[in-house]
């Protein structure tokens, strides 16, 4: 792994090396920088996105480089941020708005559900909504209430929206560039607890569609996305100590879900546990379990287990450790699947 570090916004003259180690913050920043450079219709805006460069520094330096008409601050009004995105998209722009924290997507739900999700449908394809909504998502940073949520099931349920969440700097770079190039609205859920971890970004080799096998295994598949992927990789290492060879499938796209990848993985391992931070009831784990059951019913060794957050409001930072699936809860889920026997 290269130890090369880089400034977030690249010098346009410098030759780009093929693999660079950087944080997810830097990978996202670089992707946005390139999108602005390549697509004159792309505009970035949100609370503190301009001068400050975002509370997570994702838009750092972009206003200075690309100008105040391409990267700018908005009032503290999420429905306005998304409403403006609708208007800009109707006028031919490619908005990349930011909702500063997931919990503040709620005030914008009307614009997201009633306008962004359906404008293309309503206009018979004459008014596509090429909007990439960046949402710093999930918990893990001990933030106050409303600053950690897991809204993927809410968004995935809305017809017309696509939903994606990267778990590595490499995926963050490639998925964001891909999302920003789509004609459809994409909810881009950034796992904020993973912003600072570094990893290699391979500029030439990006596969931005479908799920990704994060680790191969043969006894059981852990299905996860966003911040839970790294935890599941830790669990896989621990399970190996006990002789259990766990495969970790990073779903990445939460809508549409890569059903073929689920079928391939669980078709091989015959056991599956799906892990998410969101509450259990009506969470995306149910959708994943159904897709697995549909394709693998005949060979499944046990019902698909779900290890999830609890059916309570996403708690503030002090209670996070009690809420987010931890290593032991995931191991218990695996054990339940391993122990299952048909009568």
């Amino acid at each position: 792994m290269s130890e090369t570090t880089m400034t977030p916004v690249q010098d346009a003259e410098a030759p780009a090396p093929n693999v660079v180690t950087m944080s997810m913050q830097q990978a996202l920043n670089l992707a946005l920088d390139e999108v602005l450079g390549e697509n004159p219709k792309a505009v970035i805006f949100g609370e503190d996105c301009g001068r400050l460069g975002g509370v997570f520094r994702i838009t750092d330096g972009l206003q200075a480089k690309h100008g105040e008409d391409r990267v700018f601050d908005t009032p503290l009004a999420e429905s306005g941020i998304l409403g403006m995105s609708v208007g800009l998209a109707m006028a031919g722009f490619h908005p990349i708005p930011e909702v500063q924290f997931d919990g503040f997507a709620y005030p914008a739900i009307n614009q997201i559900v009633c306008q962004i999700g359906r404008m293309n449908y309503r206009s018979r394809g004459t008014l596509p909504m090429p909007i990439t909504l960046r949402v710093p998502s999930f918990g893990g940073i001990r933030a106050p209430e409303h600053h950690g949520e897991s809204l993927e099931a809410l968004f995935a349920h809305v017809p017309g929206l696509k939903v994606v969440s990267p778990s590595t700097p490499n995926d963050a770079y490639h998925l964001l560039k891909y999302a920003a190039g789509r004609p459809d609205p994409v909810i881009f859920m950034e796992p904020k607890s993973r912003y600072w971890q570094k990893g290699p970004v391979e500029f030439a080799a990006g596969n931005p569609t479908g799920a990704r096998v994060a680790k191969e295994g043969r006894h059981l598949t852990l299905v996860a996305w966003g911040a839970m992927v790294s935890r599941c990789l830790q669990v896989a290492e621990l399970a190996a100590e006990d002789g259990i060879d766990v495969e970790v499938l990073d779903l990445r796209w939460l809508k549409p879900i890569d059903a073929e990848a689920l079928a391939r993985s669980v078709g091989k391992t015959r056991r599956a546990v799906v892990v998410h931070e969101a509450p259990l009831t009506s969470g995306l784990g149910a959708e994943v379990a159904q897709l697995i059951t549909q394709s693998c019913f005949d060979t499944l060794k046990a019902p698909v287990e779900r290890v999830t957050g609890f059916d309570v409001p996403y708690p503030s930072g002090d209670l996070e450790d009690e809420y987010i699936p931890n290593i032991d809860r995931i191991l218990f889920g695996i054990q339940r699947v391993l122990e299952y026997r048909r009568d």
Binding site: L52, D60, A143, H147, V235, D242, I327, D328, Q335
Partner: peptide
């Protein structure tokens, strides 16, 4: 620079701890 303005705390990467062991 990378933590300026953040709400919350940058998580530390800790070695995984476990109490549960698998048997199958």
């Amino acid at each position: 620079d990378d933590t300026a303005g953040i709400v919350g705390t940058v998580p530390k990467d800790e070695a995984p701890k476990r109490r549960v062991r698998l048997s199958a």
